[in-house]
Amino acid sequence: MKLTITKQFQAFIKEQNLSLEHILEQAMIPNLLWKEELVVDEQQYYRLLRVLDECISDEQLLALSEIENINMFMPPIYAALSAKNGMEALERFITFKKLIGPITIEMEEVGNNVQIRFSFLSSNQELPRFSLLNEQLLVVSLLRRGSGKEIRPISISGPFEYGETLTHYLKCVPEKSQGNILIFQQEDLDIPFYTQNNSMWEFMEPELKNRLATFSPSPSFLETIQNELFQSIPSGHFSLSNIAQKVGVSNRTLQRNLQAVNTTFHQQVQQTQMILSLNFLQNQNLTTTEIAYLVGFSEVSSFSRAFKKWTTKNITQYRKEVNKSKGNSPN
């Protein structure tokens, strides 16, 4: 999953006294902010939510949930604001939400009310407090911004405490419950949006639908394991048990799922070590000893033998070829 993180959005995060670099480091997500994007799988995204849950205040949560602050950074929200009313806005938001995060939204009309529930794409993982409250607040802010009215939920609940700051913003008393629900009166969702913009929607709709058609929200189990190995091998914690725990399965389940696609955990470790080695050897500032440790070898001799087996070349030969291809003189 590729998430666009513009320079402007990065600056907004910084204004909230949050360090996006530190958050990514804590979540073990590669820092590609210089490219104005993040590439994450479901598990990495979930870790990101967990880290935010631990470091963010309710005031910061509210700032990140205000449509006025974030709509310019997220096309699906802008598309929702361009709708004719709240009901159409929610339908658009639900349709395109997966483009900005693996959160599932269910909406149901019950009598004169509309009920909304949120869940993580993987049903076995519960939404952290930050994520659930952010989604609920986002919907309230969207309806208020579009209609120009202070729309209040009939009811809002979740398994967490909401706190005084968020309760004051919602203008209703949240309830603590095992699940989560957000309920509005149908008549409030029928209020015309003064932000309606048919020209903008006609411009955006084809691109959003194209993104949706090519979107792959859930990586395969093999891709998930590979992503975890790329993150874990340089840290030295990449045993079968380590990786199984990170993806939330037993050792046996991990092995069985890999066998189903004709591979083994050992083969995946070796393949990842080889790819990491080839990448690290492009960096002339890293010694062979340093690279050996970074790819999970305690001894340089073992690393050298493995590299020769993988590539049929020794490390010195490979580095000479890299220097030649770059037009450098070997050290």
Rank of each mutant, 00 (worst) to 15 (best):
K97R: 08
Y78D: 07
F120S: 06
S123V: 06
L24Y: 01
E109A: 10
N113G: 01
E68H: 13
F73Q: 07
R92F: 00
S123I: 00
S65L: 08
L142N: 00
W34A: 05
E15T: 06
L52I: 08
Q26D: 07
D41M: 06
S19F: 11
T95G: 01
I105C: 06
E42F: 00
Q125A: 08
N69I: 12
M28V: 11
I100C: 14
N31W: 01
Q8E: 15
K84E: 13
L132Y: 03
L18A: 04
K84G: 02
A79W: 02
A89Q: 04
Q125F: 14
P76Q: 00
Q44N: 03
V114E: 09
L48W: 03
A11C: 05
L49I: 06
M74P: 00
A80P: 03
F130K: 10
E42Q: 12
Y46C: 02
A11M: 07
L90D: 06
S65C: 14
N69R: 11
I116C: 01
R47F: 04
N17F: 00
K7I: 05
G101R: 10
V39H: 06
D58F: 01
A89M: 04
Q115G: 01
V110Y: 03
T95H: 14
I116F: 02
L121P: 01
N85H: 03
E54I: 00
T104N: 12
E15L: 11
K149H: 13
A83F: 03
A83C: 07
N124H: 12
F9M: 10
E108N: 14
E25L: 12
Q125M: 13
F73P: 08
G86D: 05
T104K: 11
S65D: 14
G101V: 01
L18E: 01
A89W: 02
F9H: 12
F130Q: 13
N124G: 04
I29S: 04
M107T: 12
N17R: 12
K98T: 07
Q44Y: 02
Q136R: 06
M87Y: 08
K149A: 13
Y46S: 05
L38W: 01
I77P: 03
E37Y: 06
Q44M: 13
G86T: 02
S119P: 02
L20M: 15
Q26C: 15
G86A: 03
M87K: 13
I23L: 11
V140G: 04
L99Q: 10
I13W: 02
R92W: 04
L52N: 14
E25T: 13
S123P: 10
E42V: 12
L81N: 00
F120T: 07
F9E: 15
R145W: 10
N17W: 02
E68T: 14
M28E: 09
E21R: 13
F130N: 12
S123G: 03
P30G: 09
Q10I: 10
S131Q: 10
S19W: 14
G148Q: 09
V110N: 15
E109M: 11
R144I: 08
A27L: 08
Q136A: 15
S131L: 09
